[in-house]
Amino acid sequence: MQIVSLSGGFTDHSKQSATAFRLMLQAMARPGQIYRISGVLPPQPMSVAMAVILLTLCDQDNSVYIAPTYQSETVEQWLTFHTAVSFADPQHANFAIGSWGELAAVDGFAYGDDQYPELSTTLICELPALESGNLRITGPGIATENWLNLKDDASSLRRPELFPRGVDMFLTAGDQIAAIPRSAKLEMC
């Protein structure tokens, strides 16, 4: 077994994860607003923001799907050590991590059911950068509109036609996060 680096977790777990959780809640409540979260130094190729989300939200009762370019023994062992999370395929996972392109190419995630629409996969999509762009976001939590630099409206990934079923997503780049809940409306402009 190779020696895997397990360092880089929260140093002051209760404070740091509470701070991160508050910022993640804000991101979901104000879709498209960009926030910064930190406190964790994960193995490549996970970004700081992606790893903070996982360490804050995952535990032994959750599962995560890891897309191919993020999949490695190092990543799995690091996540197992810090969260005890288990690993699952996209249709059954509570969380999914990967680059935007990889997750968009997945055949289907868990979208919840009509009685429990929240039992869906939460996507954590990594982008090279997160900034204002040509994707217009409107809907609950947004006074007028927000803009992000996504390349498409992700309708095949988000499945807005299934509402209230669907997926919610965090977008990450470095230590930045933004979030798009299923209630948000996306349009390319």
């Binding site: 397990l6 360092s7 880089g8 977790g9 140093t11 777990h13 050590f81």
Partner: peptide, 8 residues
């Protein structure tokens, strides 16, 4: 040594 999980 380095601490990878602080005592909890």
């Amino acid at each position: 040594y380095d601490i990878i999980r602080p005592a909890e």
